[in-house]
């Protein structure tokens, strides 16, 4: 595997510098874009996300990226959604009532229950490791048709979901130390195999 190119969507609402740095450390070439055709043709596509559900959807609708992401999920073309990038794949969010998400996952995003610390800032156990989270909203159960793992913060919530070469993480793999690096490496490897088939 030599220098895979990773296209990162620049939706203007994410702190992309950390995501870029993480992929560069893994030896990837990185391209930041908001162009729908570039995203459609990308070998590896990343939808990062920091910010709110409504402005995230607005950014995707303005650029036509909403359709590109739906197509990629439908055709199992490599996609990584991070944090809000996972939530935008769902149907709706309590954060922005009335706003439709991309709807490729049959799940709605809800706020952490009262009485637990929000935002959830910090490292939480995920399977055999720890991942870094920075979120106030999450999905409570794994939607039909997806594999997933849970973390616990005021009850179980979805840590990450996968199907083929689609990976969606509520945590930030780019900020999750060597555990996060392994996960990104694994996604690249799986994805590159799939897209060369």
């Amino acid at each position: 595997m030599t220098d895979p190119e990773v296209v990162i969507l620049n939706t203007g609402i994410a702190n992309t510098a950390s995501v870029i740095a993480a992929f560069e450390r893994l030896g990837c070439r990185v391209l930041l874009t908001d162009d729908a055709d570039t995203a459609r043709n990308a070998e590896l596509l990343v939808l990062p996300g920091v910010g709110n559900f409504s402005s995230g959807m607005d950014a995707l609708l303005e650029t036509g990226l909403d359709q590109v992401i739906r197509e990629r999920v439908e055709h199992n073309r490599p996609l990584l959604g991070i944090c809000l990038g996972l939530q935008l794949l769902c149907t709706s969010s309590e954060e922005s009532p009335g706003v439709h998400g991309l709807g490729v996952m049959d799940a709605s995003v809800t706020r952490f229950p009262a009485g637990v610390r929000t935002p959830q800032h910090g490292w939480n156990a995920v399977g055999d490791g720890y991942a870094y989270y920075s979120n106030t909203y999450r999905i409570e159960s794994i939607p039909a048709g997806w594999d997933g793992i849970y973390s616990t913060h005021g009850g179980e919530f979805v840590a990450c979901l996968s199907r083929g070469s689609i990976l969606a993480c509520q945590f930030h793999p780019e900020l999750s130390g060597s555990w996060g690096e392994s996960l990104l490496r694994k996604w690249i490897r799986t994805s590159v195999e799939v897209s060369s088939c």
Binding site: A17, S18, A21, A22, E24, R25, S134, E174, L175, S176
Partner: peptide, 12 residues
């Protein structure tokens, strides 16, 4: 910040 970011895989 740029230089530290390049090497750091934890939050800054």
């Amino acid at each position: 910040v740029r230089a530290v970011r390049r090497v750091l895989s934890i939050p800054l």
